[in-house]
Each structure stands twice: as structure tokens, then as C-alpha cells.
Design a protein around this nucleic acid. Sequence first.
DNA 1: TCGCTATGGTCAACTGCGTTGGCATAAGAT
DNA 2: ATCTTATGCCAACGCAGTTGACCATAGCGA
Lengths: 237, 237
Amino acid sequence: MPKIVVPDEKRRRRRPTRGGTILTETLIVETALRLLREHGSTGLTARRLGLALDCDPSTLYRYFRGMDELTLAIGDTLIGQALRGWSPSGDWRHDLGTLGRRIHGAYVSHPQAAVLTTARVTGRANELAADEAVLSVLRHAGLPVREAAAVYHAFIDQTLAFAALDAASLALPNAALRADEEIWRSTYARLPSATHPHIAEVAPLLATEMVASAYPGALELLLDGIAARLDGLATRG
Amino acid sequence: MPKIVVPDEKRRRRRPTRGGTILTETLIVETALRLLREHGSTGLTARRLGLALDCDPSTLYRYFRGMDELTLAIGDTLIGQALRGWSPSGDWRHDLGTLGRRIHGAYVSHPQAAVLTTARVTGRANELAADEAVLSVLRHAGLPVREAAAVYHAFIDQTLAFAALDAASLALPNAALRADEEIWRSTYARLPSATHPHIAEVAPLLATEMVASAYPGALELLLDGIAARLDGLATRG
DNA sequence: TCGCTATGGTCAACTGCGTTGGCATAAGAT
DNA sequence: ATCTTATGCCAACGCAGTTGACCATAGCGA
């Protein structure tokens, strides 16, 4: 068994599969993303991936140590998509806002994949680049190391937390989604005001309110907080 | 197979299992919580649950339509634990803070279970009670219906989002946890300052910073925001 | 007290999952 | 042309959720 997995760059012999396709790490990841989109966050299986790539499932173990490592590669690809083409403008507020929205957006636009990876640390190239970018913006804005660390933590966790939550509800398997919608219709929308007066009162409003993400608002609040902290530093010394 | 599942209150004939235990919905849920704690968030299986309860896995289908419905019941139990013994003090800021910390705390104290349920709508009794409580606090604080709906959305999503993220990292399967820690040690802590200067600079700080949750701070920010909105309402009319 | 019936527990089986060890073969070096 | 070995394939293992058929018995009406 392949205890050793050859990294993509080091591969020399690219032998085509039974069906003629030539495998690549990126081809595998992209196909995995497609399967996730098509079949939901539990729909990525080694067998299905093998079928889609027209290769044996076990072949995948030549490229990744297991499904977990494939998951990490998928996560890093998402971060890569978020950063593609970005460069700092020099305005910290604008840059942080853009980074946050881009990362959140990349995850949310692949909700089924995001569910699998938001809470993981990949340590791969794109993740490192993103962290470096955020920290760089904070330091150039004038935050001392200690404050930069704290703010970095809040910023990245809030971004990932909302990404995870938003992605999770977008990515529910169809059955669960229908179940949740059904609960909304059959339970929340019909609650008698005798027992649940306040829910009954806002139910119609929530129907439109709850579909949008609360992230943009929360992000602005956070940026306000950072601005206040920077003001404090400037006036005090 | 049992298309019809008899709700717990309606059960009449409580026949003991092969091993003598008498099944209950709550006994099943509590055993499930124990299994989740002991075996991680993927460690709850029908077979294992049957083993722990000394009954056949298929028996569980007499109580829940499937593992998904059991999951929802587990989620509602968590919310129930969060609210147990709580009653409003009348001070909206204190009450909202307490509700947020209790809900976040209940999920985080059962991280493996939280991972499965944070993004689900159960529509069961405890969830409804929690929603009603939050909305009630907001309305009594003086927020008009429309604002209450928006703030409710931000509040509950932020609480759940951080709960989901914090729980997810606490609940990683041991293998993944070790993998992530290893990445931290082998990659982040050793990044050369030539390529990633800002990460290298804060790496020692982050080691202590990243273990704590960013939720309490984020919650206070949100409460500040609500306070400001209430001030605006008071002075303007 | 007796029997009927529906509840609720059990058994065996199906499909699909990740993963592994052994094997075959073609790509690339010589 | 030949050799090595990287890389793909095959068969199999154990475990998952779920289902249908079967059976024991609790609790009811007589």
C-alpha cells in the first residue's frame, strides 16, 4: 500500500487510467468539488470520485493519504480561490473588509465543501498566504504585535464561524433541507400567540430576514472596533 | 418497517429489551450524548448505540425515523440544558448576555454533539422556548418588531456560528486533531521569516491566543451595538 | 380469567462506505 | 531492447444505515 504519497510536482510517470484520463492532484480536487456541489456534503465518496474520474477508488490513495487529506486539499483550494488576484490597496479598512468578504464568499459559494473544511487547519500554501496577508494588513495599519495577534484571532474566527454557519445551512442534504423547511412552515409559521406570542409576532418578518447572511453587518462592527483601537493608540502615543 | 414512530408520551407497552433495559426517548438521547463524548462526533452509530443500550440497532427505528431525527432530538436536548433554570431578570443586556453565553456554553460543552446540530432547525419544544425568550427580551427592551427581528437574527446566528466553530475544533476526531496540531508545530511554528515574516512574528503569541474562544468579546460588541440602537430610539422619539 | 391485537423487540440481509495487500503494466532510464 | 518501479487495478475486509419479516408479550375487552 502507498504509505508514501508522491507530491504532484514530483510525479514522473503519468500513466493514463483505464478510461484514458490522466490524473492530477488538481484534477482530483476539482472533480471532488463538483461531486460535492452535485451530491451534497456527504456525497463525496472515494467510490463516486473514482467513478467520476474513471479510475479505481484505490488509485486515489496514490495521491492522498486518505479522504481526510483530500479534504484538506479541497479547503486550501477554496482559500486559494478567495485570494486569487487580490493585492493590498494600503487602506487597512478596505483591505480587511475585502479579505473577509472574499474568504467568507469563497466558502459560501462552495457550501458543501466548506462544511467539511472550515474548522480544519491545512497548513498548505494558500492558507499560509491568507494568514500572512491579514497579519500584514494589521501590522501596517499600526497595530503592535500583541494587539495584532488578538485582532487577527477575532477577525479570522468570525469570518470562518459565519462561513461555517452560512455554508452549513446552504449545504444541508436535500432531505434535511426539506425537513427544516417543513418545520418552518408547519411549526414556526403556525405557532399560536397564546403560547409563543413573540415568535408569532415576528414570524412573517423572519421569513425574509433569515435567508440573508448576518456576516456583512458583523464584519462592519468588527472593523469599527479595530478603528476605535487604532484611534486610541494614535491619540495616546 | 416502522413508518409510524410513536411519540414518547403515547407509549403504552414498555417491553424490556433482551438485556432487561427499558427504552425511553430520553434514555436513548442521553446514551447517544455519552457515545458522542466518548467516541467523537462520528462515533455515534446505530450499531454502537444498540450495543450500549443492549438492544438491536433496528429497535431505534421504533423511536426515531432515522439517525437524522435522533440528531435533532439531541440538539433540542442541548438547548434545553442551556435554558434549564434560567429566568429573565428584566435587565435586557444582562439577560441577552446570559442567554448567549448559556447557549454557546451548552453547545461547547458537548462539542461532538454540537457539530451535528448547530446548523439544524429542530422546531422542538426547547428550541422554540429559546427563540421566544430572546425575542421577548428584545421586545421588552423597547425594540420595535422590525428591529427586533433583525437583531434576533444577528444575535442567534452569531451565537450559533461561534458555537459551531468552537465546537468543531474541540470535536475533531483524534486523528484529525493530531494532524492539525502537527501542522501547527511542523509548519506554522517553523515558518521562515523570509517568506512569511508576519506569521513568524506572531507565532509564539498565537500559540496561547488561539486556544481561547473569541465569542465573549464578539458578544459584548454586539450588545454595544444594540445599546446604541436603543439610545437612538430613545433620544429621537 | 382468557384470549386478541397492536406494540415493540429481534434477526438476517441489502447496499454502500473507507481502506488495504497483492498484482499487473506501461513509462522512462539505460 | 531491457530493466525498474511508479502507478493503476482488483478483490476483499469490516463497518455503516436501513429495511422487511418475524415473533413475544403487555394490556385491553369479554
